[in-house]
């Protein structure tokens, strides 16, 4: 029996989150690892997945019904082939979280969300209550359907593998949903979930224009830029920048929190960062409790000075 990993991609290239998910599959072990690439015009993704370390077979389902990863369609495909596997894994990205529970229910399986550790083939660790506690859970279902917290597993090498590539003919179009459009944030800066350094701003930034200061600092550090929910809700920056329990989970080498108080929901998304710096004018701000280096001061003075000196 083998483990199935659902690839994350945009029909032209494989997303890094897939490599972390393959690593989680390796940690589970016990069988071959196969990767499903469901998409449209996605042959190049299949080839890329075949080069990932540790993969023995890539299944490519190339059909217009899968172009936008509509859960109604992809879940049916995953459920159709799911019976052949001991485990089905997807990254805990918005597309994995959207599709995989639907496939699990079709298979009559209780899915396990956002695992951060593998204890054995049926026992996993996962953060609950915004990461305030870590649960160890054991599944009694015949197939384990799991989303993987990518920051908890180091990615496998993108190159070096030589898996076979097989085509899946089956097309599932549930015909109940339609993709209308998307507005994707364009940014030259590193993506939050894979950035080595992140600079995040909160309500203390006061407005969207002031985020320019953070962009300048980020560019010097080759950093991604994140935000607290308060900054997103206030319209300073778009939603895809939100870090936290209900935003993105990040764990960079260096996380610089600027004008962020440190609510548990924000900490849930960044407290596994290796080094945390907090810049806040309120010395009592809870963010200082998790910060390795705290600087009490006015961000409007600190950030320009820091940008100059790094």
């Amino acid at each position: 029996m083998s483990i199935l990993v659902i690839a994350e991609h945009d029909n032209s290239s494989l997303k890094g989150a897939t490599l972390n998910t393959i690593a989680a599959a390796q940690a589970i072990g016990g069988g071959d690892i196969e990767v499903l690439v469901a998409g449209s015009g996605c042959a190049s993704v299949g080839e890329e997945a075949a080069k990932a370390a540790g993969v023995s077979k890539v299944l490519v389902a190339d059909n217009a019904a899968y172009e936008h990863q509509l859960a109604e369609n992809v879940a049916q495909l995953v459920a159709e082939i799911g019976g052949n596997y001991t485990h089905i894994l997807a990254p805990a990205t918005t597309s994995g979280k959207n599709m995989l529970p639907r496939a699990a229910a079709l298979l009559d399986v209780q899915a396990i969300s956002d695992i951060s550790g593998v204890e054995s083939a049926d026992t996993f660790k996962r953060p609950i209550y915004a990461g305030n506690v870590i649960a160890t859970v054991q599944s009694s279902d015949p197939i384990k359907v799991i989303t993987v917290r990518t920051t908890a597993f180091d990615p496998v090498a993108a190159e070096g593998g030589s898996a076979s590539v097989e085509t899946l003919g089956s097309a599932h179009d549930a015909g109940v949903s339609k993709f209308v459009g998307e507005e994707l944030a364009e940014s030259e800066r590193p993506e939050l979930t894979s950035a080595r350094v992140i600079v995040s701003g909160g309500r203390g930034m006061q407005n969207g224009d002031n985020f320019e200061m953070l962009y300048k600092l980020a560019d010097k550090l080759n950093a991604g830029v994140g935000a607290s929910r308060a900054a997103v809700d206030a319209g300073f920056v778009p939603n895809d920048m939100q870090v936290g329990q209900t935003g993105k989970i990040v764990a960079p080498e260096l996380y610089i929190a600027v004008g962020i108080s440190g609510a548990i929901q924000h900490l849930a998304g960044m407290k596994d960062s290796k080094v945390i710096v907090a810049i806040n004018k309120d010395e009592e701000a809870p963010i200082f409790q998790v910060a390795d280096y705290g600087l009490v001061g006015d961000l409007f003075e600190v950030i320009p000075a820091l940008t100059e000196k790094v």
């Binding site: 509509l70 918005t94 597309s95 209308v180 998307e182 994707l184 895809d240």
Partner: peptide, 9 residues
């Protein structure tokens, strides 16, 4: 709200 921004279905 998706990772890359917004999607409408």
């Amino acid at each position: 709200e998706v990772d890359g921004g917004l999607q409408t279905v």
